[in-house]
Design a protein around this nucleic acid. Structure first.
Lengths: 201, 201
DNA sequence: TTGCAAAATTTCAATGGGTGCAACAAATGG
DNA sequence: CCATTTGTTGCACCCATTGAAATTTTGCAA
């Protein structure tokens, strides 16, 4: 299963990610070409596309593992646990996740935030990925509350929670707030929303 | 103010929009090139970009006028009107807006929905535009409730409301629901969220 | 170890969106 | 009618992305 082939692929993937993040940091996203990233990772430009579907995607390399952690947490619902409590657990836990098994650490979080806030195509991609995650989380919620939630409830709960926290965070940062203030705003928005959600589950 | 120059520009803009929508409908978005759109509108390809910043943007030509209607509605808050009531008015009204002064009618709504649901780059662009609108709506809300809402409240309210309805609509459509069922889901999600929001304003 | 099939990489050419620029045409205002 | 402003065009160019064919690397079995 974990033969040489697989290990080599992981090494290449890692090299691409590291090269890309470094170059994005040094020269900016739009100023970095795929050719440069590929060269820095010592592969051909074409090979980049067998690892990532687009230039944007390399920045969100840990999306899948974060998603896996989230769905796992949801499916770990304690018997009888209330919707709002489970979601609060989810919000708290996910703020601590920097990255999963991908082996990258918390250091690239500010870089990613900066890039997503300033580069339109990255913002669009981030929103798109987040939206996709929400649909999947809603499905997971439905599974976790088979008798209590229908799909509109589940969608409304996930959409409201993530919608509120996301807008609060960005709105806070747009006003020049620090990452700490943004985190603070996120928790407050989440709690406001969860209070409303307590009428559902 | 409305000289020949201005009228001519509006005619060109309209021609571009009509040509683009027709071609997107006939051949699909990705299969339509900018050269074809420009040719159908009888301008040069280069000119397309003095009207729209990207191929995606032409599909959302009425975004600004819809936004204007929304902010106007918010600023028309009756004295003492409660947050949830104002937002309910907003949701109801906006479902009726097909397009504003742009002079296009309800006919392109299904086309747009179909394209946004199936073309990734359009979905990303739509989410990006919607997100931007949310930030502006949150600001408008803050202005409308100067004493009752701080910016986290406002962001949470807008984010939760739009997040919930959006996810409910798409989730409903993803299950094969009709546009009517989606609208139904939207209203239900909005009401669930507004109930929670009644604790804020 | 050798040889072969599968998988990964490279090379190459082409498409198409998007931009900067300089020439050109048309409208406006006097 | 002239001068200025504004919009249009053609052109050269950059770069992301894709397809296909050629080539290399790896896994595995004889």
């Amino acid at each position: 299963m974990v033969g040489l082939r697989e290990r080599k692929k992981q090494r290449t993937r890692r090299a691409l990610i590291e090269a890309a993040l470094r170059l994005f940091d040094e020269k900016g996203f739009e100023e970095t070409t795929l050719a440069e990233i590929a060269a820095a990772a010592e592969v051909s430009t074409r090979t980049f596309f067998s690892y990532f579907a687009s230039k944007e995607d390399v920045l969100f390399f840990d999306g899948e593992s974060r998603m896996a952690m989230a769905t796992e947490l949801i499916s770990s619902r304690m018997p009888g646990e209330h919707l709002a409590d489970l979601l609060l657990r989810l919000v708290r836990a996910s703020m601590g996740w920097t990255s999963g098994d991908d082996g990258f650490s918390v250091e690239e979080v500010p870089l990613r935030m900066r890039l997503v806030m300033t580069v339109p195509s990255l913002q669009a991609r981030a929103l798109h990925l987040l939206f996709d995650s929400q649909l999947r989380l809603a499905l997971a919620l439905e599974d976790a509350f088979p008798d209590e939630l229908d799909h509109v409830d589940a969608a409304a709960a996930v959409g409201a929670l993530i919608g509120a926290t996301k807008l609060a965070v960005i709105s806070s940062i747009n006003r020049g707030g620090s990452l700490e203030q943004a985190e603070e705003a996120a928790m407050r928005a989440a709690q406001l929303t969860l209070r409303g959600l307590s009428s559902i589950g």
